[in-house]
Simulated scan of single mutants.
Amino acid sequence: MRKICRVIAWTVLWVLPTLANAQTFRIFEKPIIFDEEREKLSLEYLEKRHGILQETATIQPKMVVVHWTAINTLETTFDVFNPVHLAGRPELTAASRLNVSAHFLVDRDGTIFRLLPDTAFGRHTIGLNYMAIGIENIGGPDAPLTKAQVKANAELIRYLHRKHKLQYVIGHHEYYAFQGTPLWKETDPNYITQKQDPGDKFMKRLRKKLSDLSFKSTP
């Protein structure tokens, strides 16, 4: 089975300017553990929770889901996502032992870290993981997300759109709209969690910066 090796040293991906995006930004590589066990659990999740049987734990991205961490430091958040097995959240462990994760983590100053490859499977949004890239932002109700994070999310989503031709950009609190549609793939109709992140205010500001791309927020 394919094994993605963990990189010990941080590396930096420079995204060069294009005619469509005159600014540059950096993505710092800070990978979480993605070993054979995480791949195995990811494949099990795809099959049992999404009804999708495949040989590798990969996705074909069509959507970005924006989150906040409700944890106020980068390193503490990384330590939560890094383990392969989920602990301490019985409402989620009943569905799978696979730990929650996201593809990108944006610090409060707008610094972007990649935790998983864009096309790796990550558990972050019920019913939509099979096609969604997750972006987590450091902050929450007691630490409102910043202007720098709005800017960084917009730049990151533009970069991802150039690579994957995304169709949807939603906040985590907006994912309920996809229930009952062909895009929703969750085998248990009672498996749902209530979310408020990152909130309407943040998504309104983000969508204003991305308005020229006409992303959809509902099915």
Rank of each mutant, 00 (worst) to 15 (best):
residue 6 R to P: 09
residue 168 Y to K: 02
residue 90 P to C: 07
residue 112 I to S: 00
residue 166 L to F: 04
residue 140 G to E: 14
residue 151 K to Q: 11
residue 89 R to I: 15
residue 29 E to S: 04
residue 28 F to Y: 14
residue 143 A to C: 11
residue 37 E to G: 03
residue 1 M to Y: 09
residue 65 V to P: 01
residue 47 E to I: 03
residue 4 I to T: 05
residue 153 N to L: 04
residue 181 T to E: 05
residue 212 D to I: 02
residue 29 E to G: 02
residue 211 S to N: 12
residue 115 L to S: 06
residue 133 I to R: 00
residue 213 L to A: 00
residue 30 K to H: 10
residue 30 K to A: 08
residue 182 P to L: 05
residue 54 Q to R: 11
residue 204 K to S: 13
residue 194 Q to R: 14
residue 27 I to D: 03
residue 41 L to D: 03
residue 78 F to Y: 14
residue 87 A to D: 12
residue 149 Q to W: 06
residue 105 L to W: 08
residue 55 E to Q: 15
residue 95 A to G: 09
residue 95 A to R: 08
residue 102 A to S: 11
residue 6 R to H: 15
residue 33 I to T: 14
residue 16 L to D: 11
residue 131 M to V: 09
residue 201 K to I: 13
residue 161 H to I: 01
residue 143 A to S: 14
residue 129 N to Y: 08
residue 206 L to W: 07
residue 149 Q to R: 10
residue 149 Q to D: 09
residue 100 V to Y: 01
residue 85 H to N: 15
residue 49 R to S: 04
residue 41 L to V: 07
residue 130 Y to P: 07
residue 67 H to L: 14
residue 33 I to L: 15
residue 195 K to P: 03
residue 146 T to I: 13
residue 15 V to C: 10
residue 49 R to D: 00
residue 120 A to V: 08
residue 8 I to F: 06
residue 45 Y to G: 02
residue 8 I to N: 10
residue 33 I to R: 13
residue 64 V to K: 04
residue 135 I to Q: 00
residue 129 N to K: 10
residue 58 T to D: 09
residue 17 P to M: 10
residue 79 D to H: 11
residue 123 R to A: 01
residue 10 W to S: 12
residue 46 L to Q: 02
residue 31 P to A: 11
residue 104 F to G: 01
residue 74 L to W: 10
residue 216 K to C: 05
residue 163 K to D: 03
residue 110 G to M: 11
residue 199 G to R: 08
residue 13 L to A: 14
residue 143 A to L: 13
residue 80 V to Q: 09
residue 182 P to F: 04
residue 212 D to R: 04
residue 20 A to E: 13
residue 103 H to E: 11
residue 75 E to W: 12
residue 6 R to Q: 15
residue 75 E to S: 15
residue 137 N to K: 12
residue 5 C to S: 14
residue 149 Q to V: 07
residue 189 P to A: 10
residue 214 S to W: 02
residue 28 F to T: 10
residue 75 E to G: 13
residue 38 R to F: 10
residue 218 T to V: 12
residue 51 G to I: 04
residue 77 T to I: 03
residue 48 K to Y: 08
residue 157 I to R: 00
residue 52 I to K: 08
residue 60 Q to T: 13
residue 91 E to G: 05
residue 8 I to Y: 05
residue 9 A to C: 12
residue 190 N to M: 08
residue 166 L to V: 03
residue 61 P to I: 05
residue 54 Q to F: 02
residue 167 Q to K: 12
residue 205 R to G: 03
residue 199 G to A: 14
residue 86 L to V: 04
residue 201 K to A: 12
residue 108 R to T: 06
residue 117 P to H: 06
residue 78 F to P: 03
residue 98 L to T: 07
residue 151 K to R: 15
residue 213 L to S: 00
residue 130 Y to H: 15
residue 79 D to A: 15
residue 97 R to H: 09
residue 152 A to E: 01
residue 22 A to T: 11
residue 215 F to D: 01
residue 168 Y to V: 00
residue 57 A to S: 15
residue 122 G to M: 02
residue 65 V to W: 03
residue 210 L to M: 09
residue 219 P to L: 06
residue 171 G to R: 06
residue 18 T to I: 04
residue 41 L to K: 05
residue 67 H to N: 08
residue 106 V to K: 00
residue 27 I to G: 00
residue 34 F to C: 02
residue 70 A to T: 14
residue 111 T to E: 15
residue 16 L to K: 11
